[in-house]
Write a protein that binds this DNA or RNA. Structure first.
Lengths: 340, 340
DNA sequence: CCGATCTCCGTAAACGTTTACGATACTATG
DNA sequence: CATAGTATCGTAAACGTTTACGGAGATCGG
């Protein structure tokens, strides 16, 4: 047996709907006995307050949306990446009865228009962004609509938004000094397509670090590729055929690294021997041969921080997270492998 | 400038809210000039009807939820898998103004309780399920709540639900006859953990096909492993150390196949030479060396069918999809590689 | 010129919930 | 006993939207 609305539930208990609502929401002014009766009946009859009615009255939905784009791969980050981040986010949200949903923007729809539509509808109380682009109108849009949000990734578009981004500067410093001091002179970088912001901050710092070693990052050694196996494979082939092959390559694109390995191997090159390969976070790093030297980070903790940063910018929760960082670069640690 | 509700928009235009609503929703009884005026103003002022108010009044949300579980990997299917399916789903939904969102169930919450909560709230007009388990209470739950749904995957729990599942029977027939006729006598199977349903239907058919060749599927050659690189790698090592090693292994678990390759290689075994390896759909199949022999399918088309099947079970749309299959086994084609 | 029809629009009810407010009964205090 | 205070509950308004209904004006046919 399933009951339809709070009115039915109230009639069934012979109590007014006001009292039932107060009982369910843990409000004052309700006898403990009746509260127990109400809760027990709601549980037994499978009553849960209607989302639309509740949201309409309260002015908030209790939903946080994480925007993702389907179809064409933008980031190439596998499900393990986002699913781990999500799990961290949820542990924080669960404490406040907030629900996380992924807002899926079709590849056939303009991301900006999609987001505007969703936000204007008041679908979610807060928004999480990822795959941030170099100039990203979504930030100005969200700022204009005055809806709390946080982004996983930086952008040149700056409206003072909170964000957490991977510490590409730290990564660049670590990896470039390592390679330079090990005698590498010509270093390549593989990154996803140019619109995304992450490549630029990385490259900028790379140039600075290399300059200290009197080295330059040559333009024709900066490769773009789709963030997947195919993209990595193609670059592996290209490297093998390169007239003046670099001695090392840093791969920002974690979805491409196994493809790159296989592309190199197919051309007779061994990573770590013929060419040093250093990657970003990669769940399969340990199972590649040779083992991939790459950076590691705690995705779950990142998700927790992401949630806290968002809540800190929401009036209803801000007081609970007084010292959440407004903007944060997430540290990564280099894990030694055999590839470089 | 942004306008808050339909009331403000109506005042701004000096029209009643009824007419504004009719104009926006393409209803009759509204002058074409005023309709244009309304649409233009809404566009200019960034008005979009509030989700909660609209859903409350109309009794439907226009949202379809695809349930996924975060944290621990259940299926191991990478983002390319679901994102491609989603994209197919969206092309159908877009025609009807339906929005697809992913309902993310935390690893700390019981999936059944989560789904019940979401459905009882009236959050979505329809539900899509995946990672179906052998006995899966979600089906009885959705059936009891009388909410339209479809699942990607079968279950022993049968409430007459519509579903689309991969054609594991066809796959079993194809792969086992291929291996048997090529002289393989001891064949192993790698599958994800036992709760999931997909392994069972596959194994059952495998046994039947092998029996025709007077062969048996030995119990100790049925391996379970986490559907990721680590799981595959471990099985690769186990196979190498096996006292009576099988000559072939079929991998249902697409997230494990590269790990398996690397595990085998680390132990000095070459796929396709020392042991035949045949996998399920795998985006990196072409970039492994040796190239993986595996099954392929159109994920985008699968998504389209999934959406059509769901809509066919929703009263409001059923008439538009008269010949959508209620239950369907999705065909896969074997792609020859070098691994078996 | 009258009645009928049509076009267009405004009014108000309804969706399910939360919550401010007031009412009632009971307890405590003097 | 009177009064103040407290505990508990019911009533009704409000959230933003859609839509059934009716009304006003215009058009048309006879």
């Amino acid at each position: 047996m399933v009951v339809k609305g709070i009115r039915q539930l109230a009639e069934h208990l012979d109590i007014s709907i006001g009292t039932v609502s107060r009982a369910l929401n843990g409000k004052k002014d309700v006898n403990e006995d009746t509260r127990r009766r109400v809760l027990e009946a709601a549980e037994r009859l499978g009553y849960v307050a209607n989302q639309s009615g509740r949201a309409l009255r309260k002015g908030s939905t209790g939903v946080i949306g994480f925007m993702m784009q389907t179809g064409h791969e933008i980031t190439g980050q596998g499900d393990t990446f986002f699913m781990s981040v999500f799990d961290g986010v949820q542990t924080v949200f669960a404490r406040h009865g907030l629900d996380l949903v992924a807002l899926l923007c079709s590849s056939e729809e303009d991301p900006d228009a999609y987001l505007e539509r969703v936000v204007a509808r008041g679908f979610a109380d807060g928004i999480m962004l990822s795959a941030t682009r170099r100039v990203d109108h979504r930030f100005t849009l969200l700022d204009r609509r005055k809806i709390p949000f946080v982004s996983l990734g930086r952008s040149l578009t700056d409206v003072g938004q909170p964000f957490i981004d991977l510490d590409f500067e730290g990564m660049a410093t670590t990896v470039m000094t390592r390679l330079a001091t090990r005698g590498h002179r010509r270093i390549a970088v593989l990154r996803p397509h140019d619109d995304l912001n992450l490549g630029h901050v990385f490259l900028e710092r790379c140039r600075a670090v290399l300059a200290e070693h009197r080295l330059v990052l040559e333009d024709d050694l900066i490769f773009n590729a789709a963030p997947n196996e195919a993209g990595g494979y193609r670059i592996g082939q290209d490297l093998a055929r390169h007239s003046n092959r670099p001695s090392a390559i840093v791969v920002l694109n974690d979805g491409s690294v196994t493809g790159l390995f296989h592309g190199l191997e197919a051309a007779g090159l061994t990573p770590g021997k013929d060419i040093a390969v250093i990657g970003l976070h990669s769940p399969q790093a340990r199972y590649l041969s040779p083992r991939l030297t790459c950076f590691d980070l705690s995705l779950r903790d990142l998700g927790i921080s992401l949630a806290e940063t968002l809540l800190a910018s929401m009036p209803a929760y801000a007081a609970l997270y007084p010292n959440a960082a407004h903007r944060q670069l997430w540290p990564m640690t280099l894990i030694d492998g055999e590839s470089g």
